[in-house]
């Protein structure tokens, strides 16, 4: 499912971290980001951020802007720091004890790593969908209602019902589950569970949604549904999508960033990255995966 071009689809290729094509050593001039990392009116801007796990540097000094209502795809081989970068943006790294983040990330001009910043409002504004669907072992309704409940977003039961309904509708799951809202979410298929997790994130009305390989465990049909959903959501939300499948990046994103061994190698409009990449590394990675 990863890099099946139409011609090879009957012979699925297996790709894993080990035999990732396009993996090669960085040269000194690759440490400079190519392309256009900066925007005029960014929603989030990262400046010179650096992430360490203990002594090990997982993300080298990098800067990147994320705009309003855009889909930014992040591609790159396994272990290049995509998830690490994503976790910086809503401070999910805080719960990893040995992880330290340096540099500045601002959301609407406020540095989210400032010591006065409260992570609760930050995470309600920057939601996250994980690689493996992780619904709570509760009913479908309670899964969606959990966020609004802890934040007190609904004054009454009917308001809560409305939030649940609209979230499920926006996540394209409403028709499939409307008759069994009270049954357990664990009984859904993994594709439905992933869309439930997206609906759960939508219920707290975030501005940014971080998605960490949301389709990696899904079958092609479920993947198509999630991609359609991302397309629809990009009208209202900024979405940062980490993906292993670069065709997915070309299908849903406006901008693409390529990470390699902890460096942000290149970033720019998706069409340009896929046709005329500036960096040799980007070109090698993309051509190896598209053919």
């Amino acid at each position: 499912m990863d890099n099946n071009t139409p011609g090879t689809s009957s012979f699925p290729t297996i790709s894993s971290a080990g035999d990732d094509p396009g993996l090669e050593m960085l040269q000194h001039n690759d440490r400079q980001t190519c392309g256009t990392p900066f925007l005029d009116d960014p929603l989030i801007s990262c400046r010179e951020i650096e992430v360490f796990y203990g002594e090990q540097c997982a993300l080298h000094k990098m800067s990147l802007d994320i705009g309003h209502r855009e889909v930014l795809a992040i591609i790159g081989p396994s272990g290049c720091g995509k998830s690490t970068f994503l976790r910086c943006l809503n401070r999910m790294n805080d719960s990893i004890e040995e992880c330290t983040v340096q540099g500045e990330i601002t959301l609407d001009g406020v540095n989210i790593y400032d010591k006065n910043v409260d992570v609760v409002p930050l995470r309600t504004r920057v939601g996250m969908v994980f690689q493996k669907p992780n619904p709570f072992p509760k009913s479908i309704y309670d899964n969606i209602a959990y966020g609004p409940r802890i934040h007190g977003l609904a004054a009454s039961r009917s308001e809560l019902d409305e939030i649940v309904t609209s979230s499920l509708q926006n996540a394209g799951l409403w028709d499939e589950v409307k008759d069994r809202l009270t049954s357990t979410a664990m009984a859904l298929s993994s594709g439905q569970q992933q869309r439930l997790c997206i609906a759960r994130t939508l219920a707290v009305e975030p501005e940014v949604i971080l998605m960490d390989e949301p389709c990696s465990g899904l079958d092609p049909i479920a993947t198509t549904k999630v991609e359609t959903l991302i397309n629809n959501l990009s009208e209202c939300y900024s979405i940062i999508l980490v993906t292993h499948a670069i065709e997915q990046a070309s299908r849903v994103s406006q901008r693409t960033a390529f990470f390699h061994q902890g460096f942000l190698v290149e970033v720019g409009p998706t069409a340009r990255i896929f046709t005329t990449p500036e960096s040799r590394l980007t070109e090698n990675y993309i051509t190896a995966r598209l053919t």
């Binding site: 809503n90 999910m92 719960s95 992570v119 609760v120 409002p121 995470r123 309600t124 939601g127 996250m128 994980f130 493996k132 992780n134 619904p135 709570f136 072992p137 959990y146 966020g147 802890i150 934040h151 997790c197 759960r200 994130t201 707290v204």
Partner: peptide, 23 residues
């Protein structure tokens, strides 16, 4: 208990205490 459920709650803006007591 799988941490994924705890992460889900944290990412929705639950406090550490809430993610522990609720999940």
């Amino acid at each position: 208990v799988p941490r994924s459920v705890c992460d889900a709650a944290l990412a929705l803006g639950a406090s550490r205490m809430q993610s522990i007591t609720h999940h």
